[in-house]
Design a protein around this nucleic acid. Structure first.
Length: 494
RNA sequence: GGGCCGUUAGCUCAGCUGGCAGAGCAGCUGACUCUUAAUCAGCGGGUCGGAGGUUCGAAUCCUCCACGGCUCACCA
């Protein structure tokens, strides 16, 4: 039988595993109590001079993965990597005695625990002179090359565990992701918000306009949808008397995959009773500048070719003024036909049967959005595009809504929440007509939500922020897959 | 879903207008007790993504398929 070369490499390692077992060593059974992490060692002893190590004995123990081996026959250097860094270890035959022979069975990728004494080498590198070591896990598969790492993008996503081992910046991204979410929670907690959990399985997929994933509950014999947004449940909590609530969690949308879209993505939505979108804009400025300062240590952040400046206040401009600013003639704002003609002349693709608002929205996406690099609030959208937002008090054709754009991307969407049950029901019914025309993205009428509004919801402002996109901005990643540990991919073919 | 590009050793990559499938790292054998991508000598390792086709001859040209990347569309 012909061996493939990979299994040849694996066989060689299994042989070493067998050798260890024949010597009474079980490389998968151990536990280990390290005295230090590599980070702690560098922090505590990184300043000490060579002589200072010679005058005293500093004993440490540490566990980690071998990521580099340099064998000199009777002495071996290796690099041990643990969760936050790495450190060099030095193994000598005259110190380890018989145990030194075991190193023949050591491979790059193995996880070991070592104990010994700190010193500095001739070239002044802080190193552990190993007095004892044990196998904690034998690696049977070779790791990628030490210098170039794992570059193949598909392999990096499919085998994120390998990516994390060999590409240190990946780890940093996900540590930063957690810091962003933590500082978000800290900020909201400080502001008196309650974190809640609402259902991810909905009988009606409402709160946004998107194609949902379908699933099925056997015992109740009932079709369910993975939620596309938590909005309608969080508003029910406002009705129930919570005044400041938020939820951080996954939303699921059965739509295309791109560098800006993953079918499951993380959102925060938060709601504040008795406030409106004006209050929310300055709140958003405070919240973002808090997070950015905390996580990046500065309000200026490099993203691709841009330096993004999160120093408040952010530019604020109405959707129509933004269009005007980009040279869109005012006379098309009231006339669907003129607007469509103008768009077509500019080569903007408009779906058939689009209303005036939709055409203007398309033009906006094409002409304005990519230009919004520094944080910018776009405010006052047409009512038709925003069925859950409150009408502007002085212009019922518009709603009190803003979207925050940064680096040409929509990062947040917020409005003064519509709490008039009659207006809300009318707008739902209006939408339903589109559903009857075959628009799958319009949800069914949520009668219970209307009932809740009829009980009475306080005036409130609410906002959603795409966490993945925010993480992209603050970690300088251009693809959403680089900020999601396991992005969705087709199954690997054998 | 459309367009463009990619897929060669475990990893990173060469391989020109068709003519014996290569390098570095990793691996194996040996030497070496302070290396920093250690060094030196030797060795093994390939269904060139898959299936067809053209040809005396295909990693290379053509067709289809799979997976991926970028991009457009949809969306956050």
């Amino acid at each position: 039988m012909q061996e493939t070369p990979l299994s040849e490499l694996i066989q060689q390692r299994i042989k070493k595993l067998d050798t260890l077992r024949s010597l009474g060593i079980e490389p998968y059974n151990g536990t280990f109590e390290p005295s230090h992490s590599s980070e702690q060692i560098h922090k505590e002893y990184g300043e000490l001079e060579k002589e200072q190590f010679e005058n005293q004995t500093i004993e440490v123990s540490i566990a980690g993965r071998i990521i580099l081996l340099r064998d000199f026959g009777k002495a071996v250097f290796a690099h041990l990597q643990d969760s936050k860094g790495k450190i060099q270890i030095y193994l000598r035959k005259d110190i380890l005695g018989d145990k030194f022979q075991l190193i023949k069975n050591l491979d790059i990728g193995d996880i070991i625990g070592v104990s010994g004494r700190l010193f500095r080498t001739k070239t002044n590198e802080l190193t552990i002179e190993v007095h004892n070591f044990e196998f904690l896990s034998k690696s049977l598969r070779p790791l990628p090359e030490k210098w170039h790492g794992l570059k193949d993008i598909e392999a990096r996503y499919r085998q994120r565990y390998v990516d994390l081992i060999v590409n240190p910046s990946v780890k940093e991204t996900f540590v930063k992701r957690q810091q962003i979410i933590k500082s978000l929670r800290d900020f909201l907690e400080e502001e008196g918000f309650l974190e809640v959990e609402t259902p991810m399985m909905h009988t009606i997929a409402g709160g946004a306009r998107a194609k949902p994933f379908k699933t099925y509950h056997e015992a109740l014999d009932m079709e369910l949808f993975l939620r596309i947004a938590p909005e309608l449940y969080l508003k029910r909590l406002l009705v129930g008397g919570f005044e400041r609530v938020y939820e951080i969690g996954k939303n699921f949308r059965n739509e295309g995959i791109s560098t800006k879209h993953n079918p499951e993505f993380t959102m925060i939505e938060f709601y504040v009773a008795y406030k409106d979108y004006n209050w929310l804009m300055s709140f958003t400025e405070k919240l973002l500048s808090y997070i950015v300062q905390k996580v990046c240590g500065s309000l200026q952040v490099k993203f691709g070719d841009y330096i993004l400046d999160f120093t408040p206040p952010y530019k604020k401009i109405s959707m129509y003024d933004a269009l005007k600013e980009r040279g869109v003639p005012e006379n098309i704002f009231k006339d669907a036909e003129l607007a469509r003609k103008w768009a077509l002349e500019k080569g903007i693709d408009i779906p058939k049967e689009s209303s005036l608002s939709k055409v203007l929205d398309e033009i906006f996406k094409e002409v304005v959005e990519p230009q919004l690099i520094q944080p910018t609030f776009i405010i006052d959208y047409p009512v038709e595009l925003s069925p859950l937002a409150k009408r502007k008090r002085d212009n019922p054709e518009l709603v009190e809504r803003f979207e925050l754009f940064i680096a040409g991307r929509e990062i947040a969407n917020a409005f003064s929440e519509l709490n008039d049950p009659i207006d809300q029901k009318e707008r739902f019914l209006q939408q339903l007509e589109e559903r009857l025309k075959g628009d799958e993205e319009v949800p069914e009428l949520d009668e219970d939500f209307i009932r809740a509004l009829e009980i009475g919801m306080p005036p409130a402002a609410g906002e959603g922020i795409g966490i993945d996109r925010l993480v992209m901005l603050l970690t300088d990643n251009q693809s959403i897959r680089d900020v999601i540990l396991f992005p969705l991919l087709r199954p690997e073919q054998k």
